[in-house]
């Protein structure tokens, strides 16, 4: 188990290093940063001054290691636009994004676990095919489009929910639903196939031979084994959701990290962009490791391996 963890940790560090490098390189490729910071009316002299002031005149390698060294200590520098420390900016916005991600994941699980179980119990019936169709439609639906549809119906026509902003819990419902939709198809299908496999197994026959109740057979004996891959994928999906919330946060004007990234990209505020990419990547890597750990906790056979 310890060796397994150490190996995963090394891989995670390599992935993080790659992401750091890419985030740095891509922001440099988007044009001369000194020109865009100095603004449209700046003279050549102004640009040179900005270049020196921000250290952009140094060799790329030096800039890179300078940034990495500071980032490792949690110092992402100063935002050019907000005139605030980047780490503060992200810390302010992170709770919104995390809340949105958790709401989305909760909705996704509440919908897909029962759907998957029902489809498995009614395998190859009309119910099963209907569930699979719903999953397929969910998969095919772009999230910004679903977001707009919900805004028009639930927000404007029916007036049940606010259509933008971050004020109350109600602001998280619609974006949460949209975010959940991206995870529901995969989680439903995984629950269904896991349950079908579990229900056909010898230990379920044993559970029936023991005279256990239907609920105990389905939820205790079958779901426990079917849930192992579902839990792992759910953790990874949460990572996707935190990263993918860029689109949804901008659609719903939720002031989270995704919204911050979207604003900063538009303003070429590259310290913020780099930092957001790095932070989201590290969270994603962390969640993937968490998924492996949870697998080990749920599957006793992995624990002793």
């Amino acid at each position: 188990m310890l060796r397994f963890l150490v190996r995963r940790l090394i891989v995670a560090l390599l992935v993080a290093a790659t992401v750091v490098t890419l985030a740095f390189m891509l922001t440099r490729l988007s044009g001369d940063l000194a020109i865009s910071i100095a603004g449209a009316n700046a003279t050549q002299q102004d640009v040179e001054q900005v270049r020196r002031a921000y250290g952009l005149d140094r060799p790329l390698v030096v800039q890179f290691f300078d940034w990495v060294g500071r980032a490792a200590l949690g110092d992402f520098g100063q935002s050019y636009f907000f005139k605030q420390r980047v780490s503060e900016l992200i810390a302010e916005r992170m709770p919104v994004t995390v809340t949105l991600g958790l709401v989305g994941l909760a909705i996704a699980l509440v919908v897909s676990l029962p759907l998957g179980i029902i489809a498995a119990v009614r395998e190859n019936t009309a119910v099963d095919r209907l569930v699979q169709l719903v999953a397929l439609i969910g998969q095919a639906m772009p999230s910004f489009w679903l977001g707009l549809i919900l805004m028009v119906t639930l927000g404007l026509r029916l007036g049940w929910l606010p259509i933008s902003g971050t004020g109350s819990w109600e602001h998280y419902v619609m974006p949460g639903i949209v975010l959940a939709f991206s995870a529901i198809p995969a989680l439903t299908r995984l629950t269904r196939s896991g349950m079908i496999q579990a229900l056909a197994s010898d230990y379920i026959r044993t559970a029936r031979a023991k005279g256990l109740s239907r609920a105990s057979i389905l939820l205790k004996h079958a779901l426990r084994n079917a849930a192992i891959p579902v839990v792992a994928i759910a953790a990874v999906q949460l990572g996707f959701m935190l990263g993918g919330s860029i689109v949804i946060e901008s659609v719903f004007a939720l002031h989270g990290v995704g919204f911050l990234a979207w604003e900063s990209i538009g303003k070429n505020d590259f310290p913020v962009v780099q930092a957001v990419v790095l932070v989201l990547a590290v969270i994603y890597i962390g969640l993937t490791m968490l998924a492996d750990l949870m697998n080990a906790v749920l599957d006793p056979r992995l624990r002793s391996a």
Binding site: R224, D299, P300
Partner: peptide
């Protein structure tokens, strides 16, 4: 189901897979 496991019980050919791996 009330009778199974109580007054009549059954064991199977596959001892390797007949127990639930999770419990």
């Amino acid at each position: 189901a009330r009778l199974r496991g109580d007054r009549m019980a059954m064991i199977f050919q596959e001892p390797m897979t007949s127990l639930n791996p999770a419990y």
